[in-house]
Amino acid sequence: MDNMTQDLWQHYQTPLFLLTQALSCNFSFAVITAHNPASTLLSSSQNRLLDRQLLREIELLGSPYRALIGASPDLSHMEKSWAVFIDRSMALQLGKKFNQYAIYMVERGEVSLVPCTLAGYNEVCLGRFNDYVRLVYELPDLVT
């Protein structure tokens, strides 16, 4: 495990989720993005294309979903993401399909960081999902 990947893993453990409406934690759901696969920074147009592909995959599942932004606490890094009401195995398949290092799973109101394509990392329970949520009137436009 190189230092850069370890640093990323640490950063993933302090997420901020920007939502336009509260999500019920009575149901399990995953938070998944298609942005910046394998932590490679892409242009906003490349990320939008991947996001549209992910949305098509989500719609094919026929499960409820909501748009959100996954961000660093200081908002210096933001990625369009989706809360998708699917089980863990489906969520991991989607994360792997879009070459994501990790996804977030919310189960019984607790959020965990779950590795997808990173070998040698273990799932980390981060605590209550709502502690990482900020409600906003509208999601910010993302430009890189």
Rank of each mutant, 00 (worst) to 15 (best):
L118H: 00
Q6W: 10
Y12G: 06
D2K: 15
R134I: 13
F17G: 00
W9N: 03
C116P: 00
Y101T: 13
P64S: 09
S81V: 06
M4E: 14
L54G: 00
K96F: 05
P64D: 11
E57Y: 04
S44N: 09
S39G: 02
A38P: 00
N99C: 12
Y101Q: 13
T33Q: 04
S63K: 14
M4A: 15
V111K: 00
E79C: 02
R66S: 12
L42M: 12
E107S: 14
I86H: 05
S24I: 09
A67L: 15
G70I: 10
A119N: 11
Y104C: 09
R134E: 13
P73M: 09
F129V: 09
Q21W: 06
E59D: 05
K97H: 10
N122L: 15
L42A: 04
A71M: 03
N130E: 14
L49R: 12
M90S: 15
A34D: 01
D131A: 15
S76T: 13
A83D: 08
L126T: 01
S39C: 07
R48K: 12
N26E: 15
K97I: 07
S72Y: 02
Q10G: 07
L23T: 02
R52N: 13
Q100W: 10
N47C: 06
L18T: 00
W9I: 03
S112F: 06
I32A: 05
E57M: 09
E59F: 07
K97M: 12
F98T: 00
W9V: 04
I69D: 00
M90Y: 09
T5D: 11
I58V: 05
P115F: 08
G127A: 08
D7H: 15
L54R: 02
S89I: 14
F29H: 04
F129T: 06
A67S: 13
T5R: 13
G127T: 04
S43F: 08
E57T: 09
D87F: 07
P15I: 04
L118D: 01
V124G: 01
S63T: 06
L41R: 09
Q46G: 08
D51W: 06
A102G: 02
I69F: 04
I58E: 00
L54T: 01
F17S: 00
G109C: 07
H35W: 11
L68P: 02
P73V: 07
L60N: 09
T33R: 03
S112K: 03
I103G: 02
C25G: 11
V114M: 07
L8C: 05
R88T: 04
P15W: 07
A38I: 12
E123T: 13
S89M: 14
V133Q: 03
A22L: 14
L50S: 05
A22D: 12
R108A: 15
V84Q: 06
F17W: 06
V136I: 10
Y65N: 03
M1E: 06
N130S: 14
D74N: 08
H11W: 14
S39E: 01
M90E: 12
S63Y: 12
Q53F: 08
S81R: 03
L54P: 00
G120P: 02
A102I: 05
S72N: 04
V31Y: 02
S45E: 14
G62L: 10
F17H: 00
F17I: 06
S28V: 08
T5P: 07
Q21P: 02
L92A: 06
P73E: 02
L54D: 01
L68W: 08
K80L: 15
C116G: 01
I69L: 06
Y104E: 05
L19H: 00
L92C: 11
D87K: 03
A67R: 13
S81P: 01
M90F: 12
